[in-house]
Nucleic acid binder design. Sequence first.
DNA 1: ATTTACTATGTAATATTTACACATTATGCA
DNA 2: TGCATAATGTGTAAATATTACATAGTAAAT
Lengths: 245, 245
Amino acid sequence: MKKNKQIEPHQEHLIKDAKVLVEAYPKVPLTVDCVIFGFEENKLKVLVIKSDLELYKDHYSLLGDIVKDNEELDEAAYRILKERTGMNDVFLDQVRAFSHPNRHPGGRVITVAYCSLLNINHHQLKIHDNDLNWHSHESLCDLAFDHKEIVDECYSWLQKRIQEHPLGFNLLPEKFSLRELQNLYEAILAVSLDRRNFRKKFASMDLLIDIDEMEQDVPHRPGKLYKFNFEKYQKSKRKWIGIDF
Amino acid sequence: MKKNKQIEPHQEHLIKDAKVLVEAYPKVPLTVDCVIFGFEENKLKVLVIKSDLELYKDHYSLLGDIVKDNEELDEAAYRILKERTGMNDVFLDQVRAFSHPNRHPGGRVITVAYCSLLNINHHQLKIHDNDLNWHSHESLCDLAFDHKEIVDECYSWLQKRIQEHPLGFNLLPEKFSLRELQNLYEAILAVSLDRRNFRKKFASMDLLIDIDEMEQDVPHRPGKLYKFNFEKYQKSKRKWIGIDF
DNA sequence: ATTTACTATGTAATATTTACACATTATGCA
DNA sequence: TGCATAATGTGTAAATATTACATAGTAAAT
């Protein structure tokens, strides 16, 4: 046998057929679970649904579904949102995968958690099957599977994220007052903030558009309404370099 | 037929057997890929290996492996590190899952990316099969699969993380000089920093222990050596509340 | 007309960040 | 041994950001 090309050592056992290789891989069921946050009556809420499993019959669970063949994880998460809330153009971000071998009573199922933020009033839950509804984040407990852990993780993620990115506006109406904005931050961060300093901070960022309208139907002096200037934000996204821990 | 308990609507189609349910789920092959960063000669490095696939025969790829039955994702990532570097007690964190349907030429494979930081000099690569070696992060290109995208994502993740958490010390020897520390930050953040301000910052954090030793074998005036005070850091972990974007 | 529950606004004190320069000390080499 | 090199080590002033805090005004409800 003649070779006219020298073969390097590692090339001796090259795998010719990637398909055969992959077919031999062990496989696992994969799901996506969505932690869908909303904001209503100055409370952070989470969309949950009664579990289908008898084992968890009195427990709520997150909205989740199996990932389909050839479906991207993001796609699966958007599909779930669309199916359940009818909303399409919604904030969504992957948080992380959960893989404890006993997290599902039916055997091994790995799930990827997504966090979504949506304005409760911009949509109506059409289907209330299985008691689909908003529950106050504070009072959530006894969730099915490891869903409490997933919610906790997504909540921490949200607390951090909202300080560094303008996510919060996804939870508010397009037009909002500074009080509503502050209430949102206070609810999510679980702190109380000084009103003057809060306003000063947003004023100095210069990312709110004063639309020259006032709140309606509030039982007190109405405040000005603002929109968030997404366009300006996109352009300005500052890269901060600093060290702090 | 008599019922003595009222059944709520959603309970009519409760699933009795979770196992049967899960068995009916579609399954996918799942892998873990590790982006292992090191720091040497003032360069950020990544541990890569020649691909086994003929299709990618001249390309490098990340260290990855299939996730075993009943293995947690973290476990799988630690296993890979242990097998390849012999190191056990290493920094490791999940970054995110990658799920593009065509990311693997052998068919659908979902991978979860992990980022690991280790001190190149604290271990020796025992096995150099398939040209396993450190490559400068800057010069990485033509990686197999979607591994370039994974590295990019992990690099961004690292840049952000290192500013908020004391990860960087995992890349340095236990005893290090302030210059080494600054070089590390400059390499990872790809900026140059003012030396006095850098030192002042770390001095004000008060998390470095002056061990009263000097650098050895440097071709210039030696600097003091420090250790990072992990214990104090654990206790102090400050929760900063602020809004900035 | 009064009470209620908010809006709206400014300043002084403090802490943090930035920009910037010079004297010192080991080493390597002529 | 002395000079060049390449670092270490240190301080201050200016600018910026953060914090703490109080009063007057307005719409709605009674």
